[in-house]
Simulated assay, not measured.
Amino acid sequence: MGQQFWTTVILDFLIALGVVLGGVMLGGVGAFLADDYPMFKMLRLAEQLKIWAMVAAIGGTFDMIKNIEITILGGQINLALQQLCFIISAFLGAHTGTVLIRWMIQGEY
């Protein structure tokens, strides 16, 4: 596992984190401008944006699934495990963003 692997893991984490945080913050501003309850809307958005943050971070689900299939069928288990690490990294970034939003607005876990 070289530098490229760790660079991709870090980028996937931070991209997913940024999608959740940015989407929730701008969604909260939109809820405020629409005279809605921003805190409630922000909690809902954080949960709804998790999957989209993961998809954005890994570059699309179909390509990732195809890569895993090719590497497993080709006998390259090491590459398949790397792809799974990228997915886990993106999930952790999206989940961290959701936890941070809940913490900032003192929402329920």
Score class of each variant (00 low, 15 high):
Glu108Ile: 12
Leu26Thr: 13
Trp6Val: 14
Ala46Gly: 14
Thr98Lys: 02
Phe40Glu: 05
Ala90Met: 02
Gln48Val: 12
Phe62Ser: 15
Leu49Cys: 13
Ala57Leu: 04
Asn78Phe: 13
Ile105Thr: 05
Thr8Ala: 13
Ala80Gln: 03
Ile65Asn: 08
Gln4Asp: 12
Met42Ile: 05
Leu73Glu: 09
Lys50Val: 15
Lys41Ala: 08
Lys50Arg: 07
Gly23Thr: 04
Gly74Leu: 04
Ile77Glu: 09
Asn78Trp: 08
Ile68Gln: 03
Gly59Cys: 03
Ile58Asn: 08
Ile15Phe: 12
Leu100Phe: 15
Gly74Pro: 08
Trp52Val: 14
Gly97Tyr: 05
Asp63Arg: 01
His95Phe: 14
Leu49Val: 13
Leu43His: 05
Leu45Phe: 15
Gly97Pro: 07
Ala46Ile: 07
Gly28Ala: 07
Met42Glu: 06
Ile51Gln: 03
Lys50Pro: 07
Ala56Asn: 06
Ala31Val: 06
Gly107Tyr: 04
Gly2Asn: 09
Arg44Tyr: 13
Gln3Val: 15
Arg44Phe: 14
Val24Leu: 04
Cys85Arg: 00
Val9Ala: 11
Gly107Asn: 01
Ala31Pro: 10
His95Met: 07
Leu14Asp: 09
Val19Lys: 00
Ile15Lys: 01
Phe13Gln: 04
Gly18Trp: 04
Ile101Met: 09
Met39Pro: 07
Leu33Phe: 14
Ile105Ala: 07
Leu21Gln: 04
Val29Ala: 09
Arg102Leu: 06
Met25Lys: 03
Ala34Thr: 03
Asn67Trp: 04
Pro38Ile: 00
Gln48Tyr: 10
Asn78Val: 12
Ser89Trp: 03
Gly75Gln: 01
Gln83Ser: 14
Lys66Tyr: 15
Phe62Gln: 11
Ile15Thr: 13
Phe40Trp: 05
Met1Arg: 00
Leu92Tyr: 11
Ala57Arg: 00
His95Ile: 13
Gln106Asn: 14
Trp103Lys: 07
Gly18Cys: 08
Thr8His: 04
Gly27Lys: 00
